[in-house]
Design a protein around this nucleic acid. Structure first.
Lengths: 341, 341
DNA sequence: GTGAAAGCGCTAACAG
DNA sequence: CTGTTAGCGCTTTCAC
């Protein structure tokens, strides 16, 4: 036979279904004795509530979707873990969806979450290629975007411009004047734009003019596998007339990749070139890597992100938008040093 | 109003609920015209099937649980990603649960998955502290354990003993004779045992006697944060009468930690001491890290793990147990070198 | 080919 | 305080 139902419990305890339901949800008032009998019956028949049936009748689930671009990226997997833990603590289950960053699969995954009637959705990284937020709002499903700024939805992210400014100021303090900016397909265009703006403004603030040839982009970041074309580009840049003495990189993974590339080209980091990353993933702290970087407050991002969806789920729509911007922090390690070695 | 139901579609198309259901599932036979009308109605009312209702009536979900010890561990997050992708491709949703490696939370998470009536469960790492498999078998929920050997359930794992033997043989070839074994709380006791056995047998095979003082254990691995006590232990060992010239470590993360510790103690790797890890996480391949290690076939582990649960879910119980052991592969990088530098 | 009817397991009024 | 009733949205016989 299949799983025992509330009905089996009722029979075993000699009461009605509703009484059983009442003691399970401890709603209504039940005599201690009946309650006891029901509890016993539950134990003897080995009853386990059916969340599916409950969801159907209540017309709301306790499932929230977590959409993540690349779960193999340590920054996101850590965020995902933290969000999941917070949700679980509140009694929600997390449906995890890896989107690969493609709008198409993002769409498909959201469609699927809607069929499962997810009570809310947390996105870590969004393709930004279509109006997810509007779509979900139309369905009445709360959405919060974590770790990247989104004008159309609740979101919690680090202050990207301020973070990059921290990085640039640090390099300026070290005497660097020709500071390049390297971005990558690993960060959303929106976020990248904000970070680049921070870079530009920081330079301007120091009376320096951002130069176009110092803005680089690693289009298809093969993540820990330096690609040759970019390496050549960097090589050319460094052999040019006014080579950069430092790089601000929009992402730790790419920063580490850059360091590898530089060292393959025979340059020493930080003696010849300084590199500053963004994120402060665990890897950056390794003695062998020791990357100076801008740390994102991951715990806070996850905690707030989860809290906001839960709040929206539980207090219904109509609450004012919540957009939180958290302060970044510079972590100085040994990939940056005074200019000129 | 809330989401449109099959009933709204029926009304809009001027047919019955069952006819709509038939075209959705394309079961039964429907006239092309009726079918067309229904499809149109679906589009106009904006109908989206309710997976919850469907699951309830069919008494089976298309949800599978993924239990992972630590999603922040890159080895597991990559496995989790691969498993999720495979499941999604087959039309299943993944409920992700981080267990922290504690039996208590593992239990709680499984309880929750059972309430959601998960159709199957994939475990990446198990606490091994209670009989999960029996519990689940009693409930009729397929379980497959990925990446660690489990006698009581379907499982797919690398051949641990063979992997460590590869590592030891490599070190023997390099002339090492005093080879230490360092294990850690990061790997399940079961797995650790198998790996240690491989180590012992490999030594014996070379006519060497495994010595107790060369077996170390990093009890509470602070993962990328060398703890002092262990550092002292290693220091003592290396200053002893017959210090090891090489370490086989049961896990890459710990191997990297060990390298950091050794370098802090003033030893050079691999000049003074060789280190071989296990897993081949992305990190190990970084030029700055360049860890010689035993690679696990992650894609194959994930692919097989997912395929096996799906098979069990779809073909019901009674199928013979499936226990797959995959061959490991040695990846030689620069943390190992001939003895004596 | 299509529709009517009977639930899946549970909750939520509402009577008693 | 407990039981009866009426569904939640869908699938699935089984008549027509």
């Amino acid at each position: 036979m299949s799983q025992p139902t509330i009905r089996d419990v009722a029979r075993a305890a000699g009461v009605s279904k509703s009484t059983v339901s009442n003691v399970i949800r401890d709603a209504g008032r039940t005599t201690p004795e009946t309650r006891e009998r029901v509890l016993e019956a539950i134990a003897t028949v080995g009853y386990r509530p059916n969340a599916i049936a409950r969801s159907l009748v209540q017309r709301r689930t306790t499932t929230v979707g977590i959409l993540v671009g690349d779960l193999a990226n340590p920054f996101y997997s850590e965020l995902a873990k933290l969000v999941e833990q917070r949700l679980a603590a509140a009694g929600y289950a997390a449906m995890m969806c890896n989107t690969d960053g493609h709008a198409a699969s993002e769409r498909a995954r959201i469609e699927s979450l809607l069929e499962y009637r997810a009570a809310g959705i947390v996105m870590l990284q969004t393709s930004g290629e279509w109006r997810v937020a509007d779509e979900l709002r139309a369905q009445g499903v709360p959405l919060v975007v974590v770790s990247c700024w989104d004008e159309t939805a609740d979101c919690v992210a680090v202050d990207d411009a301020a973070g990059v400014r921290l990085a640039v100021d640090h390099l300026l303090d070290l005497g660097h004047r020709r500071i390049a900016y390297l971005s990558s397909g690993l960060v959303e265009p929106q976020t990248d734009k904000a970070r680049f703006d921070g870079y530009r403004r920081a330079l301007r603030g120091a009376g320096l003019r951002p130069r176009n040839e110092l803005r680089l982009r690693w289009e298809d970041p093969a993540y820990l596998t330096s690609d040759r074309e970019t390496a050549r580009g960097i090589d050319a840049l460094l052999r040019g007339a006014a080579p950069p003495t430092a790089f601000v990189v929009s992402n730790d993974l790419v920063a580490i990749d850059l360091i590898e590339t530089l060292e393959q080209l025979g340059l020493r980091v930080p003696a010849d070139v300084s590199v500053v990353g963004f994120d402060d993933i665990a890897l950056a702290g390794l003695a062998r890597v020791s990357l100076t970087t801008v740390a994102q407050p991951r715990e806070a991002l996850a905690e707030l992100g989860a809290s906001i969806v839960l709040e929206r789920i539980e207090s219904g729509p109509g609450a004012p938008p919540r957009r939180v911007r958290l302060p970044p922090e510079l972590v100085v390690r040994s990939s940056s040093a005074p200019v000129g070695g």
